[in-house]
């Protein structure tokens, strides 16, 4: 029963996310509203952590597998990417590395300047 209940709650919150996505005219997807709704439910003690924990951690663990179909789907757009494929790949590689380096280093610098840290 525990897993059934947890999965039910998670699906229900996903559904609430869909309602929010439908009702609010912002380009924010259901999943993002869902994160915010579940977070508020936990933080405001509407739901105890134990009501979603195990099933939630399981879903997060298998999450990489969920990206395989979409990634294999890139095959479908190969035709339209092909003419400029080198440019697209170059922009993708360089900007991704740049974003990772800059956001990580800026965060780390501010942490060290203010003396806070994730290490406890």
């Amino acid at each position: 029963m525990k897993y059934l209940r947890q999965f039910g709650i998670i699906l229900f919150i996903s559904f609430l996310g869909e309602i929010a996505n439908y009702a609010i005219p912002l380009p924010i997807p259901a999943s993002i509203y869902g994160i915010i709704i579940l977070f508020l439910c936990l933080e405001l003690k509407i739901l105890p952590l134990s009501s979603v924990k195990e099933t939630g951690k399981f879903l997060i663990e298998i999450m990489p597998v969920m990206f395989i179909p979409a990634a294999a789907g890139v095959l479908n757009v190969w035709g339209i990417i092909k003419p400029s494929v080198i440019e697209y790949i170059a922009v993708m590689v360089i900007s991704t590395i740049a974003v990772m380096a800059v956001s990580g280093l800026v965060t780390q610098l501010v942490i060290r300047l203010t003396g806070h840290s994730g290490h406890q």
Binding site: I10, F39, I62, I68
Partner: peptide
């Protein structure tokens, strides 16, 4: 068949609230 895994992506993303809360 594979769409059923993609179907779980929204519920799994919603669950990212758990580590955020912790």
């Amino acid at each position: 068949g594979a769409k059923y895994i993609s179907y779980l992506l929204t519920p799994a993303t919603v669950c990212l609230a758990i580590p955020l809360y912790e």
